[in-house]
Write a protein that binds this DNA or RNA. Structure first.
Length: 1091
RNA sequence: GCGGGCGUGGCGAAACUGGCAGACGCACCAGACUUAGAAUCUGGCGCUUUACGGCAUGUGGGUUCGAGUCCCUCCGCCCGCACCA
């Protein structure tokens, strides 16, 4: 009887669909196991052969665990909000929900053909209001929470308000200091926005004009959008963000508790980018010619007088000071506040790097109230007075005693000073230029500092530059600013910089240190300024070498190797294994100890403090798009307020077009009545309609918590019940691609921790084990064609004018290459026909957009007679060429196939079933789902990426036929009449070693070797002509996770009337595995021999 | 530059904890059955040698009775981050 996979597979797929075979039970008495697949986005292209790789692996584990008696949850659903459906809607006008449903249907059809054992009763879709109701609910929880640094967890924002009230916290609003209860609603809202975990703020965002939306950092790759490859620019706009930075430390630390691949963990550590070090301030030497400095004296005094680089710190500090004010300060404050002396006086106000006890900004007068003056304090205060004086402030001082005992006299003195309105001749807007603050992870090398470097964008540059250097500095800054991000990344090696003419003073040695500007310092990280320690930092070293700056060694390697920094020699010694030399009071200390000591000294002297910097940024949460979850926020007089929980879900409204409005507002602005009326009953008529938020949530919102919803998919009262989450706990095994390392997989952990903090779930990490399946790559026949202009001249690579293709070459190429790729730049060129465009882009940038040559020529017939240049390797006239001009006469050439990611845009997609576009038969049609499943596993280790080819498929297909034949030796009836006697010893040995090997290999996710084991087993049993039920029946169970259809069929033929899913995994018996005879290996002279 | 991973036949790969290198499959070669092809079956298949044997896991060294596996050097490839101070 022939192995007819078509009928068998159809039969069992129908059976599974109708019998709920794979249903998981909540609260079962059995031990649980939760297997999760990465939430798929149902795209219009459907599944390609790469997608099921992970699903097959997880299905094998799922079916295996069931055989071991576990209650297994293996759900599937769709991340169904997303950009492609919206883009399709923009083109066609069809509602994205309809497109999405069609895509899901195709997706489901394909999944069903491969025989997965998903529990479809728990299917979820993020675009389903029943699901996004709870996404919105979690957003509201984030909005109504803050991160309490003392408890190191999130808690309701009410507790913060309570804290404000209890501690009589004061807030400076419009220059006045107020208690919480004195703030008006808008002011309270503004204060809370600084704390909420979901907050609205003006932020620099990645704006993509083509997509008309903002993108998160992880959605931008190499300066272009990850989806579509459009250019991205920086733009300042109000944005909803999630305060993921509050969780930076926990996200980092807990990586040690989870069994994820080292590469993913490392990527996350990198992304979080923790670095420990110290801030450090350098005084400037007085600049003798303030008039020349081209400063812009304050248009109005304003109260933002602090140095922005330390503002966050100072704010904390002054807040703290206000709370713990001395008796004298309290007395004086009562006498001067509320303009009692005729002028507005503020207290604990930040000026530059310092905090003034009291200040009148309008009159530039600082009032200090001191206790006993410590020696150490004295120096610091003198320094400060100097700085403030240069910034145009006058200072009066009173002692605590004077204030308490002679309050009236003190007030008179202050009033006198206020009337004397002559500002200092050195008047400046602020004290910003007084110091330069740097961040360093190596404060131990402080004595090796020989220069400071500022980022060209640093605001200080303009202020400190001396007249002699102004021209050179301006030129350099202009040069640096005109460079695009990409260019700047491209020539990282090039050393550029410019001296400013200014000097700083070394805080410990009092030496004069030149201040430079250099491209290698980034404005966006730390303070935008670094201390140059050329002997012990590679970049500082090359900078110093290039500009002939001194190099001073302060760390000696532990091995005592001599370092040489002489002319043209040496390199920076930047490791931590060394001890300090030439370093005053830290001489002889090892680096680790020196860092501790120097930080405490820096703090003692008020020069800075020990700090931790994270590279992680808050996650931008709003998208100017239609097809996403509406953000449940409305605006009452401009104050953002939460939509009431009972009014969720806030349903996505209908719009006439899926485009931004003419005024550039997001598509939701087109919706009619996109307003909200809170509690209409209480407010009477209910006609008070407030405008709703217009942006929607990003794609990763739903996928950040979907694993919880699967546990309790139909709960209408809660996002997940306590019972369900207590039972299912963490995901035991999560299989997905590594491309989500710094996106989804980080947000997924973040939301889990947040929900844990609020007590909704008992777990702090979503997935115990994570495996990244490798990518199945496609093969693209691709050739990049750039051309010459119509006058026959070759276009210049870096500033070419136009690109052309000849019709002849289209014909020649068309036979061999299936598609033609133009670079994204090229397509833009054709659309608007500008004169110059850069083609100096790597080949990998060239595949973002696709245009078939045929279509292109149809649109641009004038290009049909041009020549072209081959970009990428091309075989032509017997040799390989690249970047060469090819004349019209050349005919013999072929493209070199390139292995790359399978994607619709690259037109290299292979589908497992019949491809509706090319009508090509898929592997499932030709060989069956079982064969497809086993072949994908047989290709190699799960985590490895490999190009798709079907070379080995016949081997797997042959195995299945052979397996089938084993059960049908000599007859063709059902149930099978297999021999009932006990198996003989060689057969038993084969069986038991197979059981053992399969069990071990599944448990270490080594599925490729499982398939080999099955092949060996079948080959051996075929040789023995084995047909005993005792041997063959357990094999059916063993094979069922891998090839479930054939296993079900044979199981039924063996006389069982229940699915093989409910069978029990056989146990192996060591006694059969032991070798009957031994060949003793004997080793002599290092060689193994046998007797 | 930093971090992670990898390097084994013509190809995909196996060898998990140091113990017979190349399992299993593809491709290829020879044979059987066939008018022929397909399918199926049998045998062969790292290099070298008529053979016994010798040499082989990117390179060079080390540890060990014994190294594809552990340690060091260099070379090459892939992935991630990238003047992050």
């Amino acid at each position: 009887m022939e192995y007819n996979f078509r009928d068998i597979e159809k039969k069992w797929q129908d059976y599974w669909a109708n019998n709920k075979t794979f249903r998981a039970e909540n609260n079962s008495a059995k031990q649980k196991y939760y297997v999760l697949d990465m939430f798929p986005y149902p795209s219009g292209a459907g599944l390609h052969v790469g997608h099921p790789l992970g699903y097959i692996a997880s299905d094998i584990v799922t079916r295996y665990k069931r055989l071991l008696g576990f209650n297994v949850l293996h759900p599937m659903g769709y991340d169904s909000f997303g950009l492609p459906a919206e883009q399709y809607a923009i083109q066609t006008g069809q509602h994205p929900a309809i497109t999405t449903e069609q895509n899901i249907k195709r997706y489901r059809e394909q999944l069903d053909k491969i025989g997965f054992s998903f529990d479809w009763e728990r299917e979820v879709k993020t675009s389903d209001p029943k699901f996004y109701k709870w996404t919105q609910w979690i957003f509201l929880k984030l909005f109504n929470s803050w991160y309490n640094p003392e408890k190191n967890k999130a808690e309701p924002i009410d507790l913060l308000i309570e804290k404000f009230k209890v501690q009589s916290s004061k807030f400076i609003v419009g220059g006045a200091e107020k208690l919480w209860s004195d703030l008006n609603e808008k002011e309270q809202s503004d204060v809370l926005m600084e704390y909420r975990l979901a907050y609205l703020s003006e932020a620099w965002v990645n704006w993509c004009p083509q997509l008309g939306t903002v993108l998160a950092n992880d959605e931008v790759k190499d300066g272009v959008s990850e989806r579509g490859g459009y250019p991205v620019e920086r733009k300042l706009m109000p944005q909803w963000s999630l305060r993921i930075t509050a969780y930076a430390e926990r996200l980092l630390k807990d990586l040690d508790t989870i069994d994820w691949s080292e590469s993913i963990k490392e990527a996350q550590r990198n992304w979080i980018g923790k670095s420990e070090g110290s801030s450090l301030r350098f005084r400037l030497t007085p600049n003798p010619s303030p008039k020349e400095r081209g400063t812009t004296p304050g248009k109005n005094p304003g109260y933002h007088t602090s140095d922005k680089t330390v503002w966050a710190e100072l704010k904390e500090f002054s807040r703290e000071n206000r709370k713990t004010s001395t008796e004298a300060e309290a007395i004086l404050w009562e006498r001067v506040r509320d303009r009692k002396l005729g002028e507005k006086i503020r207290r604990q106000h930040a000026i530059g790097q310092f905090i003034a006890d009291f200040i009148c900004l309008e009159k530039k007068l600082i009032i200090e109230v001191d206790g006993e003056i410590h020696e150490q304090q004295k120096e610091y205060d003198e320094n400060r007075s100097g700085v403030l004086a240069r910034a145009g402030y006058r200072l009066v001082r009173f002692t605590n005693e004077e204030v308490i005992t002679k309050t009236d006299w003190v007030c008179d003195e202050i009033q006198k000073e206020l009337r004397a309105t002559s500002p200092s001749p050195l008047e400046k807007g602020s004290g910003d230029e007084a110091t330069i603050e740097v961040f360093t992870t190596r404060p131990d090398t402080i004595f090796g500092v020989t220069f400071l470097t500022l980022a060209p964008e640093n605001e200080l540059v303009e202020k400190i530059t001396t007249p002699e250097y102004k021209k050179a500095v301006d030129e350099y800054v202009a040069y640096a600013k005109n460079k695009s991000e990409r260019d700047r990344q491209a020539d990282v090696k090039k050393v550029t910089g410019q001296f400013t003419g200014a000097y700083a003073i070394h805080p410990f040695t009092e030496e004069k240190i030149p201040i430079w500007i250099g491209e290698y310092v980034l404005a966006g990280y730390g303070t935008g300024a670094v201390m140059g320690v050329p002997a012990h930092d590679t970049r500082d070293f090359s900078f110093a070498k290039h500009f002939g700056l001194p190099i001073k060694q302060v760390i000696e390697p532990l091995e005592g190797k001599a370092l040489s920094f002489g002319e043209g020699l040496g390199e920076a010694f930047d490791t931590y294994d060394g001890k300090c030399i030439n370093s005053d009071f830290i001489n002889g200390l090892e680096v680790k100890d020196a860092i501790k000591k120097i930080i405490s000294e820096i703090e003692k002297r008020g020069l800075g403090k020990g700090e931790v910097n994270y590279r992680l940024r808050d996650a931008i949460f709003g998208r100017q798009r239609y097809w996403g979850e509406p953000i449940p926020i409305y605006y009452d007089n401009g104050i953002p307020k939460a939509v009431d929980e009972k009014d969720l879900p806030l349903i996505l409204p209908e719009v006439d077009k899926y485009l931004p409005t003419e005024t550039g507002e997001p598509p939701l602005a087109r919706a009619k009545n996109w307003t909200y009326s809170p509690s209409p009953l209480e407010k009477g008529l209910g006609d008070e309609a407030f405008p709703l938020e217009l942006t929607t949530m990003p794609g990763w919102a739903g996928s950040s918590w979907y694993f919880l919803r699967y546990m309790d998919a139909h709960n209408e009262k809660e996002f997940v019940s306590k019972d369900a989450v207590n039972y299912w706990q963490q995901v035991d095994l999560y299989i997905g691609g590594s491309e989500h390392a710094t996106g989804h997989l980080l947000y997924f952990r973040f939301w889990t921790k947040f929900l844990y903090d609020l007590g909704y779930i008992p777990i702090t990490e979503p997935a115990k084990k994570l495996i990244n399946q490798g990518m199945i790559q496609g093969t693209s026949e691709k050739i990049i064609l750039l051309g010459k202009s119509t006058d026959g001249k070759l276009s210049d690579w870096s500033g070419g004018e136009t690109i052309f293709f000849s019709r002849q070459h289209r014909l020649d190429l068309g036979k061999r290459a299936s598609h033609f790729f133009l670079s994204a730049d090229a397509i833009n060129l054709f659309e608007d026909k500008p004169k110059a465009v850069s083609f100096n882009v790597p080949i990998s940038y060239c595949s973002n957009s696709v245009l078939s040559l045929e279509k292109f020529l149809e649109l641009n017939p004038e290009y049909s007679n041009a020549g072209f240049i081959c970009r990428g390797w091309v075989y032509l006239d017997g040799k390989y060429i690249r970047d060469e001009f090819v004349s019209d006469e050349s005919k013999e050439f072929k493209t070199i196939p390139e292995i790359e990611k399978m994607s619709k845009s690259k037109l290299n997609v292979v589908t497992p079933d019949r491809n509706p576009e090319t009508e090509e038969e898929g592997i499932v049609d030709k060989y069956g789902a079982d064969c497809f499943r086993m072949y994908e596993m047989f290709l190699g280790p799960l985590e490895q990426s490999k190009p798709w080819n079907t070379n080995g498929i016949t081997g797997v297909f042959g195995f299945l036929k052979k397996f089938w034949k084993l059960f049908h030796a000599g007859d063709s009836g059902a149930p099978l009449s297999l021999g009932e006697g006990p198996g003989v010893r060689p057969e038993l040995k084969i069986l038991h070693k197979t059981i053992k090997k399969i069990k071990e290999d599944i448990e270490r996710y080594s599925f490729n070797t499982c398939i080999s084991t099955f092949m060996i087993c079948v080959n051996e049993l075929t040789d023995l002509k084995c047909s005993k039920r005792e041997i063959l029946e357990p094999l059916v169970i063993l094979l069922s996770p891998f090839a479930p259809h054939i296993a079900e069929e044979l199981w039924e033929k063996l006389g069982h009337n229940e699915s093989v899913t409910f069978a029990t995994f056989p146990e192996y018996d060591e006694q059969y595995i032991a070798e009957d005879t031994f060949a003793y290996p004997v080793s002599f002279n290092g060689k193994t021999r046998f007797n």
